[in-house]
Amino acid sequence: MANDPLRLVVFDCDGTLVDSQHAIAHCMDHAFAQHGLDCPGLENTRTIIGLSLPEAIAKLAAPRRVTDEVIDAVTAAYKDAFFTLRQTPDFHEPLFPGVREVLTELDRRQWLLGVATGKARRGLDAVLARNELDGRFVTLQTCDNHPSKPHPSMLMAALDEAGADAPNAVIVGDTSYDIEMGRAAGMIAIGVAWGYHDIETLTASGAHAVIRHFDELPSVLDRIWEIDCDAA
């Protein structure tokens, strides 16, 4: 419809679009062990996925009272470990069920799509290329140029680049950091139940809704924006 506002749907990456927790935890344990620190393990690492890497490592390392220099070294070791892991033939970082189909449906509606992630741009580009999602998003925001979530900088940049207004935009993410970032940007914030923070945490962080399956997203947005889905 010519008079319809631009709709922008921005997705987190890890834990929302792709299941990367085991790769992240493996590289985090490797980086900590390389510098003589106790490995944080999967459960602890899950809590910081979504933050930019230096922020995440600083949070995991806090009980160990390490210096900034050690945090920088662990950060570099993590990056090297993930780059090496990504080159292995059996590297696996799959899309969650329903991602491709829902992106296609949102494209059909001519809604704009974006990504806002704590990943570096190199890592995000690798994920999109591996899953043949190159060119599906009009805006890609990463930690390279922004403060860590939940600071709203990434979403403000996404709105500006897409030409959309905050009330007509949504962030879809799996952590409280995504929800708080969306609320701070004045956007609708949708949580997903298959990621790294539980439903109670997402709700307490201010999620407007939490979906349990990816294919629920279009109908949830129809209700929030009061759109006739048959006419969309």
Rank of each mutant, 00 (worst) to 15 (best):
H30L: 12
V115I: 15
D134T: 15
L103E: 00
P152F: 01
F32G: 03
H35K: 06
K79E: 03
I57F: 14
K119C: 10
V192Q: 02
K59W: 03
A158W: 07
I188D: 01
R7G: 00
G186T: 00
R212S: 12
A62C: 03
S52G: 15
A157Q: 14
G206E: 01
G206S: 10
I171G: 05
E161M: 09
D165L: 15
Q21I: 15
N145D: 13
S20V: 06
E43V: 05
D174Q: 11
F214R: 06
T201N: 08
E43I: 04
Y177G: 04
V18S: 07
L113N: 10
E132M: 11
E93P: 02
D90V: 14
L124A: 08
L51F: 14
S153E: 12
P167R: 13
W225R: 06
L112F: 07
Q110H: 14
V102A: 04
A166N: 04
P89G: 09
D90Q: 15
N44L: 13
P147D: 08
I171E: 02
A207F: 05
H35R: 10
L37R: 13
Q21H: 10
D228G: 06
Q34Y: 05
P97I: 04
L155Q: 08
V66M: 03
L128R: 02
G15C: 06
G195S: 07
F83E: 14
F214Q: 01
K119E: 15
A204T: 11
H92L: 13
A62I: 07
A207T: 09
L8G: 02
T67G: 13
D19L: 09
G135W: 11
L113Q: 11
M28L: 14
G15Q: 09
D29W: 02
I224C: 07
F11A: 05
